[in-house]
Design a protein around this nucleic acid. Structure first.
Lengths: 101, 101
DNA sequence: GAATCGGTTCGAAAAGATTGGAACCTCAAC
DNA sequence: GTTGAGGTTCCAATCTTTTCGAACCGATTC
């Protein structure tokens, strides 16, 4: 019964401190950098962290998703992760660019 | 014997994730906003948090200081807190502006 | 439909952050 | 020198995050 569509916050509802917190972890920031190049299969990201257990990776993604930073949608039998760049740019102009520079 | 001059990191030594983490706490971010207007006596900042115990406030300042965000120097019998804006702008261009906007 | 692959969720343990009281330190004023 | 104001440090309690195994789920492939 439980569907696997995950909750994504409205961008107006995300607080700046939540975004900053999500980005303040090196592993999460690295994922954001990878995804900044374009949407990525979840299996494909975390290239820098090869041996990461999947539950851990799933949790990192959850924090990013709940902070409004990434979108994570079902895609075939996997998932596609993408950066919510337009949303973030509208809500916190310049932030993403300065973090990713 | 112990001097009360506190350690301030070289700006090149501070990691982006440390800065983001320090700014990800609402109370700390508020202090940064206050200090962005110009140097402030430590006693004068935290206006939004009137009843904050001094040990707690001291700890918030420590996190900001160790992240390279503020400078905290003795001044009379108190301390003067200032934003390391130039350092931060050089190290992470645009970051501070986008966070404080 | 059975097996498998990619991910989520749950639960519990470990690690780290926050909070605040108490003791202490420094400077300045008296 | 004593006192008081402004802050730091220490410590312990609490809270939050992180980590990861185990169980589960849905879509795909056979």
């Amino acid at each position: 019964m439980a569907t696997y569509d995950l909750e994504h916050p409205q961008i107006e509802d995300v607080a700046l401190t939540d975004v900053l917190f999500a980005l303040s972890d090196p592993a999460r920031l690295e994922i954001v950098r990878e995804v900044a190049g374009g949407p990525l299969e979840m299996a494909a990201c975390g290239a820098t962290n090869p041996g990461l257990p999947k539950s851990t990776k799933s949790h990192l993604m959850k924090v990013l998703r709940e902070a409004g930073i990434v979108r994570n949608v079902p895609n075939g039998r996997g998932r596609l992760v993408s950066l919510r760049k337009d949303d973030l740019d509208a809500r916190f102009p310049g932030l993403l660019d300065s973090v990713l520079r």
